[in-house]
């Protein structure tokens, strides 16, 4: 039963879900099935969180118990998990009602024409008072327009304080570290070592330049933009001729001939290219044609592969869920 029942469940559920697309939408059977499926998958997914939580507590707990190096950080991790989870779950309005008033004689004139929400908040508690945001305006029928008047205090839960000043900045900052690594990778990895790498290099340079208004760079920007075709075609021709020369000195005359002919062909294409084709136009051409072709090929290939995998899963040939001993 442990071995043959799960594949049967998987196959039957999968086939029923595939067939549901052929059911009329306004029948009770369709509605009941959709509700059952939606809610049960949510509930099962919720228990996945418990597994994650147990795993976190287990790992960090072991580190604390054994006093492994860095166990202090595990204490901090677990305590912040507990604080945030408790303040969020127990009550949205946790803590004493300390009110922080807005500054007196605050100059609001500066902010009359700025398009942002003026929200003030304190650390603990939450109380609806008059304020000029849409949340309260939704509740009242005669919502006043924002006239640059002095706003009163709105309190926000401790939970939202964590969200606004810890989660949001740190989430964004963690991702932004990648910018530094990407720029370093640009220096280290983007080398024209082979013809494939050169194609990658050329395409990325054209798109890097085409995505930004390069003419705004002082001194050289306008020249680069004005001579886009010269820069691109000349670099290509010179690179191909360099490769042809290398082949010539290695006595590969046929390859040398082919490369020289390619350089000549590129020269002809340059001659017939309209004058208004600059970096932005080249970027659009690359994105709409060769990039499109590559991505479409990858997309169709991946979907064909996942279709094959889906059929294998539903027919029981592949069983990714058969973990666990016993």
């Amino acid at each position: 039963m442990r071995n043959y029942l799960p594949p049967i469940i998987c196959g039957v559920c999968g086939v029923i879900m595939m067939l549901h697309f052929f059911l009329p939408e306004n029948t009770m059977l369709y509605k009941t099935m959709m509700e059952w499926v939606t809610n049960s998958t949510i509930v099962v997914g919720v228990f996945g969180l418990f597994i994650g939580l147990a795993s976190l507590v287990h790992n960090h707990g072991n580190r604390i118990a054994r006093r492994s190096p860095g166990w202090g950080y595990s204490v901090i991790t677990l305590s912040f998990t507990a604080i945030v989870a408790l303040t969020g779950i127990i009550s949205q309005n946790v803590g004493p009602s300390v009110v922080s008033k807005p500054l007196e004689k605050y100059n609001y004139d500066n902010r009359k024409n700025q398009d942002h929400t003026l929200i003030t908040h304190t650390l603990f508690g939450y109380k609806d008072e008059t304020y000029k945001t849409n949340l309260v305006a939704a509740a009242s029928s005669d919502a006043p327009e924002m006239k640059g008047e002095e706003i009163t205090v709105r309190k926000v839960p401790l939970f939202m304080f964590f969200y606004n000043y810890v989660i949001m900045p740190m989430g964004a900052t963690t991702f932004s570290l990648l910018a530094f690594y990407m720029i370093t990778a640009t220096y280290r990895a983007m080398r024209a070592k082979s013809w494939e790498a050169s194609l990658l290099l050329i395409s990325s340079i054209i798109i890097l330049i085409g995505q930004v208004p390069i003419e705004e760079i002082p001194l050289i920007g306008k020249w680069i933009m004005g001579h886009a075709q010269l820069i691109v075609y000349m670099s290509l021709i010179l690179y191909i001729l360099y490769a042809a020369m290398k082949q010539f000195f290695s006595r590969n005359f046929i390859t040398c001939g082919i490369l020289s002919a390619s350089a000549a062909l590129i020269g002809v294409i340059w001659y017939y290219t309209p004058a208004d084709v600059d970096f932005e136009a080249m970027k659009s051409i690359i994105l709409n044609y060769p990039n499109n072709a590559a991505k479409r090929g990858i997309l169709i290939g991946v979907q064909l592969g996942s279709l094959a995998t889906s059929i294998k899963i539903l027919s029981g040939i592949e069983k990714p869920y058969m973990g666990g001993r016993g």
């Binding site: 994650g52 939580l53 950080y73 991790t77 912040f80 998990t81 945030v84 939970f159 989430g171």
Partner: peptide
Amino acid sequence: TEAVFVGVSFGMSIV
């Protein structure tokens, strides 16, 4: 800061 971030974001996802 990493420890704080991991703790707070896990607490958030629980809530």
